[in-house]
Simulated scan of single mutants.
Amino acid sequence: MSTNLNIVVIEDHDALRDVTVAALAGHGHKVIGLECAEALYERKDIEWIDLMIIDLNLPGEGGLSLTQRIRNVYPNIGIIIVSANNLAEHKRLGYDSGADIYLTKPTSLDELSSAVNALARRLKQSHKTNTSSPQICLRSLTLQGSGMVVQISQHEASALIAFMRAADHRLESWQLLELMGSHGSEYTKASLEVAIVRLRKKLVQVGAAPHPIRAIRNYGYQLCEELGLAD
């Protein structure tokens, strides 16, 4: 297959996750394996996701909740649910949450690879973005919209992606401090506010509403603007 994808596998069974990651990487894909949904929010090096493989029975946030939220944030990526539950009602819930394909465990690596290939063809032929909202281009590190292109830093891009992935698009101050390359002190918290003000201005330049990131007292910040990912 000529289409190589950026794939995230979320599976809490260590051996199964390792085998799946190795098999897909052997087909030329760039694959990252994570043990839970929460680990996805903590990773700073995941910039672009084409496809996610999600186990339903995860510790912490469950697979259905994660699938629904990922589908809302990334409407055009491929999502494969893998579950030991083969009841029709559970499959319906999986598809209703946003899955493209629901596979029942035990799933052979050949079957999983075929499902990935099928989604790869769909992604290659019909990948679209919602160009009515500001777009993040991770390859060029720019924000795009309203006829404007604004340069952003790697730290700013990481923060915006983390906002998009987070529940209710909220991040605590300590999370943002780490994403922005700082660590917790009064000085760096003040610096964080300056960085957020700068990022707000950049978002407004590309068509965002006047207050695209709002402060949450004694917590952190929330992204209030819908963003898309540009090719």
Rank of each mutant, 00 (worst) to 15 (best):
L138T: 10
V73H: 06
C36S: 14
L223V: 00
R198V: 12
L24S: 08
I70V: 15
I81F: 02
V21D: 04
S182C: 07
R69W: 12
A195E: 07
S146K: 15
D168N: 15
I136C: 05
D231W: 13
V150G: 14
R200E: 14
T107G: 05
T67K: 00
N130I: 15
T107F: 12
L16M: 01
S173Q: 13
N72R: 07
E111N: 13
I49V: 13
L229N: 09
N72L: 09
G147E: 01
D55N: 05
I161Y: 03
N72A: 14
L171A: 08
Q144D: 15
A167C: 11
K201P: 00
H127K: 11
P59E: 14
L87R: 09
E47R: 12
P75W: 04
G98H: 10
L199P: 02
L223W: 00
A84W: 04
N76Y: 06
Q144W: 07
R200F: 06
I161M: 10
V206C: 01
E11V: 00
G78K: 06
I77E: 00
Q68S: 10
N4R: 04
C137G: 05
A115P: 07
G98Y: 11
D55H: 10
I53A: 05
K128M: 03
I77F: 04
K128V: 12
K201N: 07
L112F: 05
R17F: 02
E186N: 08
A99G: 09
R43V: 00
L119T: 07
E186Y: 04
L40D: 02
A195T: 01
D110T: 13
Y74I: 08
E156Q: 08
N130T: 10
R71M: 02
G60L: 08
L5F: 09
S108T: 13
D18M: 03
S97L: 07
T188N: 01
L103R: 06
S114N: 15
V150H: 04
L112P: 09
I10G: 02
I81Y: 11
I70S: 03
